[in-house]
Design a protein around this nucleic acid. Structure first.
Lengths: 151, 151
DNA sequence: GAGTCTATCGCAACACGTTGCAATAAGCAT
DNA sequence: ATGCTTATTGCAACGTGTTGCGATAGACTC
């Protein structure tokens, strides 16, 4: 399947990059990458820790978080903070996207790169910043809730 | 001074609102509001806990955080999450504003409501969301770092 | 002022992440 | 295969917030 392929390719890429940097490929890292690839879309740090622990009960949170940091450093994974400040991770393969949380109904919406383009442009125009879409996590009122409260 | 005045007014408003809701005005809440007013601009949860503890060693974190939640519920305070997920609080009297963190040089920039207006408009146009400016916390590259890395 | 009701407090335990350090084990050379 | 170097691990302790619960103490009535 495509997913297996992707995971496999990722592992190989990772091994190569690590070797080049004098770093090591370990069983734990394999497990963590697998878990991350398997948890399609998003997963919180705690969820990942738990799933990794299922696969290898000796694995500890510190290892998981350190590996996630490493993956981010290598540009293979990303994380952002939800409205409650908790961390959410996903593989870089997942399409880059932002997040919108509605404070009224609690709905969560994804924001595709295409939809975000004009927003990014506005940010750049107003501030000179080129913002990271993947780190963009907005809170506000969705159309429906805005209309309901707006009256 | 203006600040004292403002704080005083806040206390009175707060007492009135609480009474109306069948809630109570306590010494701890007074201290927490004072500390929040004194820490002009932003303060992390931990900082506030520490300062409150200085004023009243018997005060505990749970009280501080619960009071901050209450103040937010009443619309008198706000919090947002920094790039590390840590909480930052400020009084609602402070002008509404967003935050920009540069991933390159670590600089932090404030985003005034005026500057943000076109951004908010772009968000509304693209998504139907009316975003909370106070919860807006962008990460990206500032103009300088973007130019430096852009080459 | 004494009594009642219950919001709030302090405490203790928990959840999520992070960090320092000694032990382990990858990866390389012989 | 054996030994060496040092990146990585697991452990244990910490930092920041959150939650449940019994004790305290506001606010209101008599």
């Amino acid at each position: 399947m495509a997913k297996q392929q992707a995971t496999h390719g990722l592992t190989e890429r990772l091994q190569a990059v690590l070797k080049e940097r004098g770093q090591r490929w370990t069983e734990q890292r394999q497990i963590i990458v697998d878990v991350l690839a398997a948890s399609d879309g998003h997963a919180t740090g705690a969820e990942l820790v738990e799933r990794v622990h299922e696969q290898d009960p000796s694995a500890t949170p510190s290892t998981v978080y350190r590996t996630l940091d490493l993956l981010e450093e290598l540009g293979l994974a990303r994380h952002h903070h939800g409205p409650d400040g908790r961390e959410t991770y996903h593989l870089e393969e997942t399409l880059e996207h932002g997040h919108l949380h509605c404070r009224g109904c609690g709905a969560e919406q994804e924001l595709s790169a295409a939809a975000a383009a004009p927003i990014m442009k506005a940010i750049a125009a107003a501030t000179g910043f080129s913002a990271d879409l993947d780190h963009l996590s907005l809170q506000g009122l969705c159309r429906r809730c805005g209309a309901a409260q707006g009256s």
